[in-house]
Design a protein around this nucleic acid. Structure first.
Length: 853
RNA sequence: GGGCGGUUAGCUCAGCCGGUAGAGCACUUCGUUUACACCGAAGGGGUCGGCGGUUCGAACCCGUCACCGCCCACCA
């Protein structure tokens, strides 16, 4: 206890980290019933990213709730997962090792990934690539584990999972097969959003609109039935044009609708049709429909049953071969100039050809428009039609009902879910043309030419899961028939990362393997997560839980905000505004200090990264140590006192109110309010109460000693969720067991533990004495006398109501401010007059015998 | 274009059902008071984003505008 404080905090954190781990303090007691359990569907962090302070913030929020619930007597199921599947890891591996996957290459058992990336990217086989992914994520997981441990998260590490691991793959594949059997999952070559850079399909939930500059081109179509002019930003899609649409009420085109016109350059006959989605105000009011320029094209294509004319390929270039619907010689000639070009180059080319043919009217008009990107991508998405696995959504009413049933913290986050549900288009594409993910557990029969028959799916036995169809052969087939005509081939794709993480309750709760555990934790109590993934993780989990269990997966959703820099920009590596490694911050300020900062961020609100708050938190932690030293330095028998002091009782009355406040706040997931109430009282306790009773305590006053100890015990507990390390340390000085397994304080107990009577004094009495003390201290400060020099006397003018409590605390007030005599005088407002200081310096400190009154 | 949050002291934020503004940090002054100098006490500092309205009374309720952040939106 004698070390310098700065070293002391470090020691304390190291000591309790080890102790909690050794004693398995947070181990989940799986004998408890569902009613006694509080279960948390912890967000598995993506381990391919960088650690930054934002990680500390939201995970601390969850831990605050977990620790509170544990102290309330709940057995807390608090697992951790590592989200390591998916593209993020692939990109990380490519960056760290300089390798990329080429699935056509054969497996090389001798392959060892390079330590550092070389000049050129090395292409390796899929099994080699996946092995490297595992190596890298294993490495990264360690740094996350270290951070969570040092931050003091009260996770039960025995329930750790990874989203790429065999158990997760088994759950994902089993759930997939079940939905397939129910007809909820289907395979279709429907139009799909496609990223040309990563060459994978993506889902609606992963879209991001970005504003891009573009040009409107005014284009004349060939028509005998009147002017058919459109405006488009994507003239390169002209060869994919299948129709033209106008709004049914648009008088300008009434005669044109129903006619046939021909496309410029390519001379393809297309119908002019009416559709309500065509907006008269946009462009010329006449739109060309291509397969596919955007989502509206998809809708028109479906509604109007138009032909499919795809010209853009998976690599984002126009197909090299002339499409068969371009018949005329001139069309072939025109297409020959664009086939094989990228979209951008093709656009330039077509524009210049249109200009030449005179079918481009006027000059291009610049515009800004929203373009769809994959959130991870750098190039605009295209819409292609390739075979994909889709999950049908439940109807919107059902989904909205779940949104209503779920309790949202904060409440306003609910609308984000509702908006998302209302804006759903089509079904959920769960397919990704990637490598490091959970494979689809299916094979296809091959026809006599060796092409997969999409409708002839071969499924594995449930008992064999998880399987990798690219290396495992279906039962009853010769492995050598893989790829042979008449044989089989594995599904080449992997599941969308959300298709796995939407099963996080089942994965964490070992749904398939542990029928004893599952009913004790499901449906879960809490899903904590960030608001940006309401439309993905939260929404998809609701969908999956609906299909598997017909109920909400959890009762509460606590939505956290972002951590931003002082300019309100989200902290991120790419913006370059992410400050230090959070591990360094913990080293510098202490974990309790970082947690304090995090706890000051209210649920759902963005939190500003502010080193000042770390200092405040650190100060609070040190204060708790110091005041505990003082209080525990005096005798402390917690026995009832026959005649409890009124001040002591009123202080405990005020503390009891704080306990109620903090408890209610925690019940509403408002840990910030709980901290605020506790902290405020704590400082007042230290600065006012402890100072007031010092003399009484020294002279053996049982009432003051008892009250001090009740208050200290309560405050240590109230602060324990926020400052788990320091709270545990000071608790260990005088209590048995861990503070984190102690019973959360109760307002009645706080009052009765000491006086034996439940009707404690009004906490207003405490406020009155505090106010009087402040007034007296002000007078003392104005007198400019050193504290040791006693002020002979002063008059305290006071409103009528507070005479009694002030009178009762008279001796304490005099000693705390070193005043010889305090005269009371009724008046309007609290003030001090008639200060009489002793004429000469007097050595008086505190009176020897303080039991006078 | 639609929606959601926010705008209160230099900074970070409280302010529950409307009763003429609070805390912490920072700043200034004072103080070695055997828990704590990573301390204690005191002090200065705000026309509560703008404009209307309701009310005896508005930071708080209503309308409107501005700004910041975020989410969503069918790229013609």
């Amino acid at each position: 206890m004698t070390e310098k404080p700065d070293k002391l905090l470090e020691e304390i954190e190291r000591k309790w980290c080890a102790h909690w781990s050794d004693s398995r303090l947070y181990a989940f007691d799986r004998t408890r019933d569902r009613a006694e359990v509080f279960s948390i569907d912890t967000p598995p962090p993506t381990v391919s990213g960088h650690l930054h302070p934002g990680h500390c913030c939201s995970y601390t929020h969850t831990d605050l709730v977990a620790r509170y619930q544990r102290m309330r007597g709940k057995e807390v199921f608090y697992p951790m997962g590592w989200d390591n599947n998916g593209l993020n890891t692939e990109r990380r591996v490519q960056l760290m090792l300089g390798i990329a996957c080429d699935p056509t290459l054969p497996y090389d058992p001798a392959f060892k990934p390079p330590e550092k990336p070389g000049k050129n990217i090395v292409h390796v086989s899929r099994p080699n690539f996946i092995a490297s992914c595992h190596t890298v994520t294993g490495l990264l997981q360690k740094s996350y584990l270290e951070l969570w441990t040092k931050l003091g998260l009260s996770v039960d590490w025995d329930f750790t999972y990874t989203t790429i691991g065999a158990p997760a793959a088994r759950v994902s594949q089993a759930a997939f097969l079940e939905l397939l059997q129910k007809g909820i999952v289907y395979r279709s070559a429907s139009p799909t959003l496609w990223d040309i850079e990563f060459r994978t399909s993506v889902a609606q939930a992963e879209l991001q609109d970005r504003m891009l500059a573009g040009q409107f081109y005014r284009i004349q179509f060939r028509s005998d039935a009147g002017d058919a002019i459109i405006e488009t930003t994507r003239p390169e899609l002209l060869p994919a044009c299948v129709a033209m649409v106008a709004h049914p009420d648009d008088d300008r085109y009434r005669s044109l609708v129903g006619q046939t016109v021909r496309t410029p350059l390519f001379d393809v006959a297309i119908p002019v049709l009416a559709h309500p989605l065509a907006e008269p105000e946009k462009g010329t009011g006449l739109a060309m429909v291509c397969t596919f320029g955007d989502q509206t094209d998809v809708t028109w294509w479906r509604d109007l049953q138009l032909p499919l004319r795809i010209v853009i390929e998976k690599n984002g270039r126009l197909a090299k071969a002339t499409p068969d619907w371009l018949r005329s010689e001139s069309a072939e000639r025109a297409y020959a100039q664009v086939g094989g070009l990228t979209v951008d180059k093709a656009r330039e080319q077509i524009v210049s050809m249109l200009a030449e043919s005179g079918e481009l009217l006027g000059s291009p008009r610049p515009t800004e428009r929203a373009v769809k990107f994959w959130e991870n991508g750098k190039r605009p998405l295209e819409i292609l039609a390739t075979p994909q696995w889709f999950v049908r959504y439940p109807d919107k009413e059902t989904l909205l009902r779940y949104g209503e049933e779920l309790r949202w913290w904060p409440e306003f986050m609910r609308v984000r879910y509702e908006h998302w549900v209302n804006g759903l288009i089509g079904d959920w594409n769960v397919t990704r043309q990637r490598y490091f993910g959970v494979p689809f557990p299916v094979w296809y029969r091959l026809d006599s030419d060796g092409n997969p028959l999409q409708d002839e799916v071969i499924l594995p036995d449930h008992a064999d899961l998880p399987i990798d169809p690219s290396t495992d052969a279906p039962r009853g087939f010769d492995p050598n028939d893989r790829g042979r005509p008449g044989g089989f081939a594995g599904d080449p794709d992997v599941m969308d990362t959300w298709a796995t993480s939407s099963l996080s309750p089942q994965i964490a709760g070992r749904f398939l393997d542990d029928s004893d555990l599952w009913p004790r934790i499901f449906p879960m109590d809490l899903r904590p997560q960030a608001h940006e993934i309401i439309r993905t993780w939260l929404f998809y989990t609701v969908v999956r839980s609906h299909y598997e269990f017909g109920m909400l997966p959890w009762a509460n959703a606590a939505i956290s905000g972002f951590v931003t820099d002082p300019d309100r920009k989200k902290l991120s590596k790419s913006l370059g505004n992410a400050p230090d490694d959070p591990l360094k911050l913990i080293e510098q300020y202490g974990a309790d200090a970082i947690r304090y900062w995090a706890a000051r961020g209210r649920p759902g609100q963005d939190v500003i990264f502010d080193a000042n708050q770390f200092k405040v938190g650190r100060r609070l932690a040190i204060k708790l140590i110091n005041v505990s030293r003082f209080v525990l330095g005096v005798p402390h028998e917690l026995q009832r006192v026959a005649e409890p002091n009124a001040l002591d009782q009123s202080m405990l009355g005020a503390l009891a109110a704080v306990v109620d406040d903090a408890t209610e706040a925690f019940e509403n997931y408002d840990y910030t309010r709980a901290l605020d109430a506790t902290e405020q009282f704590f400082w007042s306790f230290c600065d006012n109460y402890v100072e007031l009773v010092k003399t009484r305590v020294r002279t053996g006053d049982r009432s003051a000693q008892g009250a001090l100890h009740v208050a200290l015990r309560t405050l240590q507990q109230l602060l324990a969720p926020f400052l788990p390390f320091v709270a545990e340390e000071v608790w260990s000085w005088w209590q048995a067991g861990s503070v984190h397994r102690s019973r959360w304080p109760n307002a009645d107990d706080v009052q009765t533990a000491f006086s034996g009577s439940p009707d404690g004094r009004d906490s207003g009495d405490w406020d009155a004495v505090v106010a009087a003390l402040a007034e007296i201290r002000r007078a003392r400060a104005d007198s400019r006398l050193p504290f040791r020099q006693q002020i002979e006397s002063l008059t305290l003018v006071h409103p009528a109501g507070i005479a009694a409590p002030v009178q009762a605390a008279m001796a304490d007030l005099r000693h705390a401010a070193n005043i010889g005599e305090i005269r009371l005088q009724p008046g309007a407002a609290l003030s001090v007059t008639d200060v009489r200081a002793a004429p000469a310096p007097v050595a008086t400190t505190v009176p020897e015998n303080a039991s006078d009154g």
